[in-house]
């Protein structure tokens, strides 16, 4: 038996430029539980999107997997598939039928000169297997489109003949979610699905996503920087900083313990409408430059709890009661145990 649906193992991704290379993902190991919602939190440049594109095997050039694997387990019996070894045909099946993605900015993910129906049709056609007649396919598209658009609360007959510019931002985002469901995937990656939407629309979209997760058992990976959204929506949280996974645990544990100083900083920098905000404080310093990463722990120049060891040694990811953290503050406890 295997609880995990996806396992990222010692993954290293570099973008090679003329004179130097940028390490966007630095030795990340992370497991995603079947049927869970896992949030990956981090600022811009922390490697969230690169990680997601590694899962779909769509890393844009000049990016390259240097080492490590992305393993996919189709069912609980655990036939593992190495995503980075798939042949084009298998990859074509894996993308969208096993794992799909809702991209950031739904506005620009839809083709502006095709109606929603045509785009649904195109996707189904590309992924259709065997000999399928045109009429048969058309019927299949209509049936499936009706199903998925109903899940996201859109009026099928009204939406299908429309062009993307006729839809509002929230509607486009819901069409994109319907799109990602089209071929019954087991995993959906959501890259900042609600930025640029207002809170009421955001709330309704997360309700829909939560229903999809609960009713259909779809595993979701949410990339975001909004701690409020994470608290409301995710079961597990992974915090990334400068291409490294610095903390990983279930949501309550992360918010309750905040083991890593960066996680603590992020949560204490998030204003809330119900709390007294007088204890809020920003994280000092600026996000790291990936070209000139600080030595040792990349967070040490901004860390209020940094000590002599931090600039010298890279911390390892250690486990403390099902709570993964990568910080020298907890090294000692590891040796005790």
């Amino acid at each position: 038996m295997n609880d995990d649906i996806l396992l990222i193992k010692n993954l290293v991704i570099e973008y090679e430029l003329k004179r130097y290379s940028i390490r966007a993902i630095d030795d990340v190991t992370m497991a995603f539980k079947r049927g869970s919602i896992t949030a990956i939190v981090g600022e811009s440049g922390s490697g969230k999107t690169t990680l997601a594109s590694a899962i779909l095997e769509v890393i844009s050039s000049p990016g390259r997997i240097i080492s490590g694997d992305v393993l996919y387990f189709q069912n609980a019996q655990g036939f593992e598939t190495k995503i980075n070894n798939l042949k084009p045909k298998q990859l074509n099946h894996y993308r969208w039928q096993e794992c799909s993605m809702v991209f950031q900015g739904a506005q620009s993910s839809l083709n502006p000169v095709m109606t929603i129906y045509e785009q649904f049709y195109e996707t189904m056609m590309v992924h259709a297997t065997g000999n399928i007649q045109k009429g048969e396919l058309k019927e299949k598209v209509l049936r499936r489109a009706k199903e998925v658009l109903e899940i996201v609360n859109l009026d099928v007959d009204r939406i299908m003949p429309m062009y993307p510019h006729e839809l509002s931002g929230g509607m486009k985002q819901r069409v994109m979610i319907a799109f990602s469901l089209l071929l019954n995937p087991k995993i959906i990656i959501l890259d900042e699905p609600t930025t640029a939407l207002d809170v009421i629309t955001q709330d309704s979209i997360f309700k829909i996503l939560k229903n999809i997760n609960r009713d259909m058992g779809v595993t979701m990976i949410l990339l975001t920087h909004d701690m409020g959204v994470v608290a409301k929506f995710a079961d597990f949280v992974g915090v990334m900083y400068a291409g490294k996974l610095v903390e990983y645990a279930d949501t309550k544990s992360v918010f309750g313990k905040r083991l890593h100083p960066y996680t603590n900083g992020l949560i204490s920098a998030t204003p809330s409408i119900i709390a007294d905000n007088s204890s809020l404080k920003p994280i000092e310093g600026v996000p790291p430059d990936l070209l000139a990463l600080p030595s040792g722990c990349p967070f040490h120049p901004r860390c209020p709890q940094a000590f002599s060891k931090c600039p010298l040694l890279k911390p390892k990811l250690i486990e403390l009661n099902n709570h993964l953290v990568s910080c020298h503050l907890y090294d000692k406890e590891e040796t005790k145990a």
Binding site: N153, S168, G170, M171, D198, V199, I200, T201, Q202, D203, S204, D226, M227, G228, V229, V230, A231, K232, T251, K252, F255, I267, T270, S272, I273, I274, A275
Partner: peptide, 26 residues
Amino acid sequence: LLSAVPIPDPIVAARQKDIPIKGMNI
């Protein structure tokens, strides 16, 4: 609007209720 604002605390967020509003589109 206030009911829809996500609260950065998983325990409180789990108790948030439905939004008193009809229709999702402005």
